[in-house]
Each structure stands twice: as C-alpha cells, then as structure tokens.
Design a protein around this nucleic acid. Structure first.
Length: 319
DNA sequence: GCAATTTGACCGCG
DNA sequence: CGCGGTCAAATTGC
C-alpha cells in the first residue's frame, strides 16, 4: 500500500495529469471557436475539473484523506481501499469475509447525486435500508439476486459519505458463489486500443453533438457512468451496455446503487474475483476516472496497470 | 402480472 | 436497551 504512495510515482502521475490539464485547456480554446461545440466545451471543463481533482487527491499524499465521520469504523484505510477485516468472532453472525471499499462517483455537471458508485458485475437486490447512527445518509443493504436460485450468500452495504457526496462506502460481505454470466470481452484487453477507442469516440462525439440540453445530463451521471466524460454514455464510456441502468425511482437516490438488477451485460469487475484490487485501486480510481469507466479493473491487469495505463492514458488520450 | 424496491417490524448481539 | 442487520408485506415500475 505504501508503494502506491511512492513519491516518485505520485509525482509522475501529477505531472501527467497536469499535462492533461494543459491539453484540455488547449482543446477548450479550439472548441471555443466553434459555436456548435459548446457542448464539448462543457465536457472539457468536466475533464479539466476532474483532472484537477485527481491531482488534488494525489498531492494530498493521502489520496483523499478527507475524513468523514462515517468513515470511522467503516474504512480504516484511505480512499478506495479494500480491506480484509476478519470478523470479530461473531458466533453465528457472519463468519464471512468483509471487504470495505470506497468508491468515488463524479457526477461532473454537478447534477447532484448520482445513483451508483460502481457496478461490480454482479446483480444485487436491495433488501433493506437503515438510518445509521451518526451518519447523515442511510445505509442500503443488498444481496445477490441469485441468493435463492443459486444459494449465493454475497451481500453488500452501500453508504454515502457524510461530507463527500461523491464518495461511497461499499462493504462486501461474503463471497459470490453464483455463476457470473459469461464475462463479456473486457473493455480493455489492451489499454492502448481501449484508449484509442475512447479518443475516437470523443472525436465522433465532437462531430455528432447530439441534443445537448436534454435531461440526459443527470441521467448520464446516474446511468452507471459516474465519470463524466460525456453526457452520452454510449459514445464515450465504452460500456454502452451499461446505460440501461434504471435510476431508482426514489428521488433520494443518494447512493443506494440501483441494485443493478438488470446489469446482466455489465463488464464484469468483481471485487472478489479481481483479487488484485487491494491498494492499487487508489491509482486505479484516478485512472478509471480519467478513463471514464469503472469497468477496467479486470483480473488480467495487475500491478502493471498502474504505470502502463496511466502512460497510455496520457499519451493516447488526446493524441 | 412479475420483479424489484420501499419501509416498518422484528431479531440478535454487545 | 440500543443499534445494526434482516425479513416480509406493501408499493411501484416495467
């Protein structure tokens, strides 16, 4: 974990992110000349602020150490960490493993709350919600949709952070024994092509410039593409299948992920299968934020991911 | 009509 | 006894 905070690496990332900022700024200038492209300008500003945030996170050295009172007891470790917490000898109650893990959702356009932190590739069904003492936001309880049909005992709890509305604590309990649907082709079999694809899409979007002002703005964020490079998930986010997310009917989506009951086709990244998740997810988070998808973390990518992906990122992103 | 979500009640642990 | 977790009836959405 400490290795992640290695100074050199951080500096590198910061440098690269700064580079992105510059590029985006340039891009914005260019876009400014074309009235049609104001929507893209909007995107660039989103990218810009996102990048800035990432830099901030990194330079704060603790990677988003912002404390939220609710963190106490939930996530002993910093942002987006996966924690193995051997359960305190509870007799019968939950001898299952517990993994805590924070997820940041960036809704970019300030559209307020977005609906779902991440979809982890499993189908969850909400079975409860509770106000938690001392926490502003209630906690949502989810179990695997296939609990009965396949006897899968996995559950998760999702709670929004008090202070940072974009931060969610997700606690996974137990392991999935259900059969994951056939893993769809990973969005990033190769980071390079992945990003080329991305930039290609960006280009297309620049030209297409579909309906800007639609209520999409919000739904885009809620749609399961929390990281907003676009308001049209299908085009940029490389996970077009994810769009059918139904925003929970509640006005208070605050964060209980929409139980992804319909996420049959979601690019899978299962916290349990992807054992590599650990601390490197700190970088991953930044990376995935930049990449506008939360899917990438596939078992295949290991520690190499950090550096490689970031490098790819920077170089091919706007190239 | 079915499946998913909501929400108050219930239960067990500390 | 309070709090957190789960259950299950009612409600809502597709």
């Amino acid at each position: 974990m400490d290795s992640v905070h290695d100074n050199g690496s951080c500096r590198l990332v910061v440098t690269e992110l700064s580079h992105i900022k510059k590029l985006v700024a340039q891009l914005e200038v260019h876009l400014g000349e074309s009235p049609d492209l104001c929507n893209c300008k909007h995107l660039t500003s989103q990218i810009f602020s996102l990048t800035e945030r990432s830099i901030g996170i990194i330079t704060s050295s603790d990677f988003g150490q912002k404390r939220s009172s609710t963190d106490v007891g939930l996530t002993p470790s910093p942002l987006s960490s996966v924690v193995d917490a051997p359960f305190k000898t509870n007799k019968k109650r939950k001898m299952m493993e517990k993994r805590t893990h924070q997820v940041r959702v960036t809704s970019g356009s300030g559209g307020g709350e977005s609906a779902t932190p991440v979809d982890d590739g499993h189908s969850w069904r909400k079975y409860g919600q509770k106000e938690i003492l001392g926490a502003k936001h209630p906690r949502g309880y989810y179990r695997c949709t296939y609990r009965h049909s396949q006897g899968c005992t996995a559950t998760k709890q999702v709670q929004r952070s008090d202070q940072d509305p974009e931060l969610f604590d997700v606690i996974y309990l137990g392991t999935h024994t259900c059969v994951l649907r056939t893993t769809p082709p990973k969005p990033n079999p190769d980071a390079r092509s992945f990003l080329e694809n991305l930039s290609a899409n960006l280009t297309v979007k620049t030209e297409g410039l579909a309906v800007p002002g639609e209520p999409k703005e919000w739904s885009a964020a809620a749609t399961g593409t929390p990281f907003c490079f676009s308001s049209t998930p299908a085009s940029v986010c490389l996970a077009p299948e994810r769009s059918p997310f139904s925003v929970p009917s509640t006005s208070e989506n605050w964060g209980v992920s929409p139980a992804t009951s319909d996420s049959n086709h979601v690019a899978s990244f299962a916290p349990f299968e992807a054992a590599e998740w650990r601390a490197q997810s700190e970088y991953q988070e930044v990376v995935s934020a930049l990449v506008a998808a939360d899917a990438p973390p596939a078992p295949a990518l290991d520690q190499d991911l950090d550096d490689d992906l970031i490098n790819f990122d920077i170089s091919s992103f706007f190239a």
